[in-house]
């Protein structure tokens, strides 16, 4: 994992759950919530969980920021680019409009160790074919100013997910990887489905779903 990892993808692809799990499992120092698109289910809502895992959370910087709907990100979001000892996960908002926030960091990219990972759930109608996924990658690149460096297979139907869904996702992401040259780096698998005899492409991220209440 590179020192700085941005998570992007079509909105509703599960970026935030991936970002939370990745940040906690890889023991990064900071999680930066750049989601100014969604009003609910943002990683800043899990600040307590992240703090307990020793991870600092940066979001809007406004008091009670977890309940506001402001297109504003705290200047603290730049700190990992200035302090080279920090490892960070950046959770971008969905799609091109969310990826636009990436541009403000681009002056720092040449001398930083940065990954931009594109998260895909093929059960979202806008990313249910290789052609649509490639188109979406293009939109992210166009608006964020950086080409994704890796793919994450996060294919799921929430509570109705199966291992076969992940394999189906892999089946669509392989031709995407071939056509774009962007490798499939991670696969997110809900912990309850994760077994040793269920191999996946790339590194496995067993997922704990932080936003899934019993009744939700």
């Amino acid at each position: 994992m590179k020192r700085i990892t941005f998570i992007t993808g079509f909105f509703g692809s599960g970026k935030t759950e991936i970002a939370l799990n990745l940040a906690i499992q890889k023991q990064v120092d900071v999680l930066i919530d750049l989601d100014i698109v969604n009003p609910y289910f943002r990683s800043r809502e899990q600040e307590d969980v992240l703090n307990r895992a020793g991870i600092r959370v940066v979001s809007s910087g406004v008091a009670n920021g977890r309940f506001v709907d402001l297109p504003y990100v705290a200047k603290e979001a730049f700190i990992p680019f200035w302090d080279r000892t920090l490892r960070a996960v950046y959770d971008l908002g969905g799609s091109g409009s969310g990826a636009r926030l990436l541009r403000q960091f681009s002056p720092y990219f040449p001398d930083s160790d940065v990954d931009l990972l594109f998260c895909v759930n093929i059960h979202r109608e806008e990313t249910d074919s290789p052609a649509k996924i490639i188109q979406e990658i293009g939109r992210i690149e166009e608006s964020g100013g950086m080409r994704p460096t890796g793919l994450i297979n996060n294919t799921n139907l929430l509570t109705e997910s199966t291992y076969e869904d992940l394999l189906e996702g892999e089946g669509l992401l392989r031709p995407v990887a071939d056509a774009t040259g962007i490798p499939l780096i991670y696969t997110g698998i809900v912990s309850s489905l994760d077994r040793d005899d269920r191999p996946v492409a790339g590194e496995k991220i067993p997922l704990r779903l932080y936003f899934k209440n019993t009744w939700l």
């Binding site: 909105f11 509703g12 759930n121 059960h123 979202r124 109608e125 249910d128 799921n156 139907l157 929430l158 109705e160």
Partner: peptide
Amino acid sequence: GKILMKGNEA
């Protein structure tokens, strides 16, 4: 088959 949708999109 089934797809995953956000309430507002739905």
